[in-house]
């Protein structure tokens, strides 16, 4: 089973919920798909036993075969190839790796070579399996790396996915195919505004979901009213406690020091099991 943990807005406690949920349930695997800013490892401190570079295929042109016909440039939607009089240039950082140019080259002058966009790492901490990705600095294309991290999904474990914030392509790449999604929010106008966007995404993807309200005692009641009106289940509330904030700041998963919350996360997990679509 795959449970993704997402939030429209960043900084609502998505990583906190993903990490503590993974630590509170049996037989879990935590995959941090926030490859731009991966944070789960800070709290898990896993022993990384495998680091693999992740590549996308980009064209390389054999100029001895090329007759500068311009077909590759014409089929490239991303302006990654420029054909000039007697010269051809490839701009690998613009390439999305679709493969059209090499396939359609009439002289078979294009082969594909790997370009690294980041690394995927896996490891363990106790019984917990862990995986995440790190996007290289200056790199714009995260979905292929997210896909690589998700390929580590262990089908016999409960996979918890830490999803990047927002509603755009990296979010979809991370959430798609989940059995359930936990949306983490805080009861502030910003939190609610972004929660509504995230709810739209999940409805579009047709994935069952519920809400965790973090720092539940700061802000106002609008988020609760919204959830009631939209019939969205509130799975858990976490109050603002300085103790939690301080543990977070030093990179400690708070259930490690406040084990009473482990029961709450386990309870939420059991609740999720009842809400997952049966095949």
């Amino acid at each position: 089973m795959i449970i993704s943990v997402a939030s429209g807005k960043g900084g609502t406690g998505k990583t906190t919920v993903a990490v503590n949920l993974a630590l509170s349930i049996p037989n879990a695997q935590l995959l941090d798909c926030d490859v731009e800013e991966p944070n789960s490892h800070i709290f898990i401190k896993p022993n990384i036993d495998n680091t693999s570079p992740v590549f996308i295929p980009v064209p390389e042109i054999d100029e001895s075969l090329c007759d500068y016909c311009g077909r590759c440039q014409e089929v490239c939607e991303y302006n990654a190839i420029a054909v000039l009089k007697g010269a051809i240039l490839v701009f690998p950082e613009l390439c999305h790796g679709c493969g059209a140019c090499s396939y359609l080259c009439p002289r078979k002058a294009i082969k594909e070579v790997n370009r690294e966009i980041g690394v995927a790492e896996t490891g363990t901490k106790g019984n917990l399996q862990f995986g995440h990705g790190r996007l290289n600095i200056g790199e714009a294309m995260s979905p292929p790396l997210i896909k690589a991290v998700r390929e580590y999904s262990n089908p016999v474990r409960t996979v918890i996915i830490d999803v990047p914030p927002g509603t755009s392509c990296p979010v979809i790449s991370s959430i798609k195919g989940s059995d359930f999604c936990v949306l983490v929010t805080e009861p502030t106008p910003f939190g609610l505004n972004d929660l509504i966007l995230a709810v739209e995404v999940l409805r579009k993807l047709d994935i069952p979901f519920g809400v965790v309200i973090n720092r539940s005692d700061l802000g106002n009641k609008d988020t609760y009213e919204y959830c009631a009106k939209e019939k969205i289940p509130i799975m858990m509330e976490i109050p603002f406690k300085k103790e939690i904030a301080v543990l977070y700041s030093t990179g400690i998963a708070f259930t490690e020091q406040m084990p009473e919350y482990k029961k709450e996360f386990l309870g939420m997990y059991k609740n999720i099991l009842t809400k997952v679509k049966k095949p």
Partner: peptide, 15 residues
């Protein structure tokens, strides 16, 4: 002032 905050600030400063 959190480890994640520092980690992420470092990455964005590199950008």
């Amino acid at each position: 002032p959190t480890l994640s905050g520092l980690h992420d600030a470092d990455r964005v400063i590199q950008v």
